[in-house]
Each structure stands twice: as structure tokens, then as C-alpha cells.
Design a protein around this nucleic acid. Sequence first.
DNA 1: TACCAGGAGAGCG
DNA 2: CGCTCTCATGGT
Length: 304
Amino acid sequence: MPGAPLISPTQSLSQASVLRIPLDSDYDLEATLNSGQAFRWQLTERGWTGVIGTHCVCLRSQGRDLEAETAHPVSEWGWLTEYLQTGLRLEVVLPTFPDDAPMRAALASCRGLRLLRQDPWECLASFILSSTKQIVQIRQIVESLCERYGEPLPPPRASGFARACAFPSPARLALAGETGLRACKMGFRAPYLLAAAQRVAAGQLDLARLAARSPESARAELMELPGVGPKIADCVLLFAYGFQNAFPLDVWVLRALRQLYFPGRRIQLARLRRFAATHFGPYAGYAQQYLFHYMRKVKDEGRP
DNA sequence: TACCAGGAGAGCG
DNA sequence: CGCTCTCATGGT
């Protein structure tokens, strides 16, 4: 892979593993881990702690590099560099964005924002839970689901956590039943998540095989699930399968298009869809994440 | 308190 | 199609 990092793992006395990942361009951990792509990262005293597959890991920036710490010795770190997409060259992606005022503002405001490459099941399940929920609440539901049904994992010392747990498997959630899922406060989304868990557990929906399909075909298959419409399907295509042309059109991005590109005008939804599909280039989904995060930042800061 | 949240499905003309 | 209503729950 071009630009693949040289990796130098070290083992400490406590059986923990620490990995240093050299970077050749910007990587903003906070923007990336806390921008509504993934829902399990928490800022702890010595870094961002979260769970990737069966690894609980604590991440921090060290100068130009990233540093990762796990509780147990790790000999193979591909799961981490794949998830973080540290090999992706932002300097190739960013110049493909349209050179207009809104994109320039978003780029200036979100330097170092990346797209993650997540596990398809966790991504699908999380975004099924996301509909008409604030990001804070999605986090709470996902955490509750993991505590109740996920396998326990050893947390790294730097996290300060007493325990951690994996994202629950489809089989485990299928077994939990609607009542068990509703106990995690997901409300009307419970039957949707249950149906998805059952289909994946039964092998009726093969998420691994979707990666080899065309984006259109993968999208159509995801949308056969109840509770999965265009927006959630696009999130999974973008955040889990890496179809970087997928463009999740949610309330924030719609707001961005209306306010930044067509201020003061009354534009139909259908026209905004066409604009989104044609204006942002081959990495439209990447551009979308910059607009999304930019809108949320300027809201938190009061004014743009 | 009232409003709304990284939506989707069903019912309607 | 395009519009409206509803769904469950809690943050601000």
C-alpha cells in the first residue's frame, strides 16, 4: 500500500501493547472519532477509548503520530490501521472536493477529519438505532446494548475503565428478542434491529459478501431490511464498505446544502438530492462528512 | 414545558 | 409520486 506506515510495536511490563503509527498528513482524532460516524468512543484522561472488534484500545496523538494502547499483547495491528484508515492519503482526497466557498470553509474548520472503516454489522446496527435520535442518545443506546449483550473485554490501563465489552453479535441480539432490545431504550427501532440480527444470524443476509458487490446492488440489499431506508443504507456503504461516493443525506447535510449553497431560497428536496449526487465528485461521501461536522461545530460555537 | 433528534413506513390524494 | 402522520424516548 502506498504510504503504509512503518509500525513499531513495543511490549511493556504489564503485558500491554503500545503501537506508534507514523502519519504523513493530518489526523484529528477528536473530529474523526466524535463526528457521528461511530458511537462508542469516549474521551478519557489519557486518550480516546473505544472498542474495535474484540480489542478495547486507547488512542492519542503524539506529535505527528498516533499512539495506541491495548490491555493485552497484540502482534498484528491490521485491524487498527484498517479501522483508522491511516494509510489513506488526504492530500489525494481533499483536492477532489469542489472549490467553492462552503467547501473551503468546511475544510478550514475540520482539518484532519477522516472517514473510518467500520465493521459492517456494528455500523448497520448502530445506524438502525440512529433514526430520529440525537448523537448523545445513540451513544447511550449502543452502550446499553453492549453492556447487556456484548462479550466482556479487558480495557487498557490508560483508559481508566474497569471493564469494557464488544459490540454484540447478530446471533446474540436475535436471541435477546424484542423485549430485551426494548430494555435498551431503543423504542420503535427494536423490531428493526431484531429483524436485521435475525437475517444476518440466519445467513439470509451475508454482510461480508456485500463488499464485493456494486454500490447500487449493495444499497438495494441493505434497503430490503425493515427500518433501513436510503440514508441509513448510505451510511453503511460509506462508513463500513468504503464506497466513498455514497452520500448520506440527513437533516444536518440538508441544512448545510440549503444554508450554504442556496441561502434565502426555497429549494425542493428533489433538486437538493440531484445537487448532492452531482456536485461533490468521486469522494462525495468524504465531502459530506466535512459538511456534516462543520455544521455541527458552528452550531456548538454559536456562530460560523 | 415544548420542541426536536444523522429516518422510515404507511396512508392519502 | 409527494405530502403528512406516527413511531419511543430523552436532551436541551
